[in-house]
């Protein structure tokens, strides 16, 4: 398992690319932030509406903004994968070593996974369909509110622990 992860987590071609062009890493950082803003701006807006902020909005049309959130998520995953796969080019540490010792990175990945499960729950509990009927000024069902609250907590949590990663153990000693 370790050998397999060590093999797939380091991308030599990406490392060369990052080493050859100084702008690659900061470009990925910009993508990560733009992606974050798009995700929180649209998914967060949807969650806020379910929780009762901007209650004058019917819920169903707010969904039409969510593809922008998916786009933001893709930007963040692509740039985030670059940080992992090309880590060696930046700090000469194997990403696997960071992954097994850095609690913040682990928490971030777990939170993203939980956000995925939360989204799955949104569909499986029928809330996804139920909220489409929520019109202007109306309250979303309590379960939908709970799922929206969990979503907001998890995404802001992802931002928080994400920021802490470089303060965590980066396996620089070994």
């Amino acid at each position: 398992m370790e050998a397999f992860l060590r093999y797939i987590l380091r991308w030599p071609s990406l490392e060369h690319f990052i080493q050859a062009y100084a702008w690659v890493w900061p470009l990925a950082e910009v993508m990560h932030f733009v992606g974050l803003a798009l995700l929180i701006g649209t998914v967060g807006l949807f969650d806020l509406r379910l929780l009762g902020v901007g209650k004058g909005l019917a819920v169903a049309p707010v969904r039409r903004l969510l593809p922008w959130g998916v786009f933001g998520f893709v930007l963040s995953v692509v740039s985030g994968s670059l940080f992992v796969g090309g880590l060696w080019a930046n700090i000469a540490v194997h990403p696997y070593d960071v992954l097994i010792v850095n609690g913040y990175l682990q928490t971030k990945l777990i939170f993203i996974g939980l956000a995925g499960l939360n989204l799955l729950a949104f569909y499986l509990t029928g809330m996804s369909r139920a909220v489409d009927a929520v019109g202007p000024g109306e309250d979303a069902p309590p379960l939908a509110k709970a799922i929206a609250g969990v979503s907001l907590f998890l995404w802001f949590g992802v931002i928080y622990v994400g920021r802490l990663i470089v303060w965590g153990n980066l396996a620089l000693g070994g």
């Binding site: 803003a37 995700l39 019917a58």
Partner: peptide, 20 residues
């Protein structure tokens, strides 16, 4: 601030036209 204003700007530009 960037996220929510982006959502409003996208709506103003014509995306999600059904949104009041």
């Amino acid at each position: 601030v960037v996220g929510l204003s982006t959502a409003v700007a996208l709506r103003a530009l014509g995306f999600a036209p059904g949104m009041a």
